[in-house]
Simulated scan of single mutants.
Amino acid sequence: MIEVYIDGASSGNPGLSGAGIFIKGNDILEEYSIPLGIMNNHEAEFHAFIKALEICHKKAYQIISVRTDSKIVCDSVEKQFIKRENFKPLLEMAFEFIPSFDLFFIKWIPSKQNQHADRLAKAAIHKN
């Protein structure tokens, strides 16, 4: 199983944003700091999730467990629903990737357990 830690960060709301993705598994350690342009923090969290799914799909990982400190991302995926209209297209994009995995899990974790992805996301802000 591949563990995928994700975080989105924004320097303002909205402001310059970045995605941090840390992937680990048997003999796998990958880090990504992806600049996202200007968006709010929740949008950055969703984009980090989508980018992580895209990376895992391209690498043909079959069993992934996504870990996030974003309640809105985790709850939206688990419920397959989100109230805010502007986030619906982002959730739909995520659900285009999820069926490509043999097994997919998502779990909410406290911020202190997601510090690696947080550092990567903050570094991505400076790459904009």
Results as ranks from 00 to 15, higher is better:
residue 20 G to L: 09
residue 55 I to R: 11
residue 97 F to W: 14
residue 2 I to L: 12
residue 98 I to R: 12
residue 46 F to W: 14
residue 27 D to A: 05
residue 71 K to T: 09
residue 32 Y to L: 04
residue 47 H to P: 02
residue 8 G to D: 08
residue 30 E to T: 01
residue 39 M to Y: 04
residue 75 D to L: 00
residue 60 A to I: 00
residue 4 V to S: 08
residue 87 F to A: 06
residue 2 I to A: 11
residue 59 K to I: 01
residue 51 K to S: 11
residue 54 E to G: 01
residue 97 F to P: 11
residue 9 A to M: 09
residue 7 D to Q: 05
residue 6 I to W: 04
residue 128 N to T: 02
residue 27 D to N: 12
residue 119 R to G: 02
residue 18 G to S: 07
residue 94 A to F: 02
residue 7 D to S: 04
residue 83 K to H: 14
residue 87 F to L: 15
residue 127 K to R: 15
residue 37 G to K: 08
residue 54 E to N: 12
residue 42 H to P: 02
residue 112 K to N: 15
residue 126 H to P: 00
residue 110 P to R: 10
residue 35 P to H: 00
residue 43 E to H: 14
residue 93 M to H: 08
residue 112 K to M: 04
residue 120 L to V: 00
residue 52 A to C: 00
residue 90 L to V: 10
residue 69 D to T: 01
residue 19 A to Y: 06
residue 70 S to D: 09
residue 9 A to R: 12
residue 84 R to N: 15
residue 97 F to S: 06
residue 48 A to F: 09
residue 33 S to Q: 06
residue 21 I to S: 12
residue 94 A to E: 04
residue 41 N to E: 01
residue 31 E to C: 01
residue 55 I to D: 06
residue 121 A to F: 10
residue 59 K to W: 07
residue 63 I to V: 05
residue 2 I to C: 05
residue 53 L to Y: 10
residue 33 S to C: 01
residue 37 G to H: 03
residue 116 H to Y: 09
residue 59 K to A: 03
residue 6 I to M: 06
residue 52 A to D: 05
residue 98 I to Q: 10
residue 37 G to Q: 05
residue 31 E to W: 06
residue 78 E to F: 01
residue 67 R to Q: 08
residue 6 I to P: 06
residue 96 E to F: 13
residue 39 M to A: 03
residue 66 V to I: 15
residue 29 L to R: 14
residue 92 E to D: 10
residue 69 D to I: 02
residue 72 I to S: 15
residue 103 L to C: 04
residue 84 R to C: 03
residue 64 I to Y: 08
residue 106 I to P: 10
residue 15 G to F: 05
residue 46 F to Y: 15
residue 93 M to I: 00
residue 100 S to L: 02
residue 108 W to S: 02
residue 113 Q to V: 03
residue 37 G to W: 07
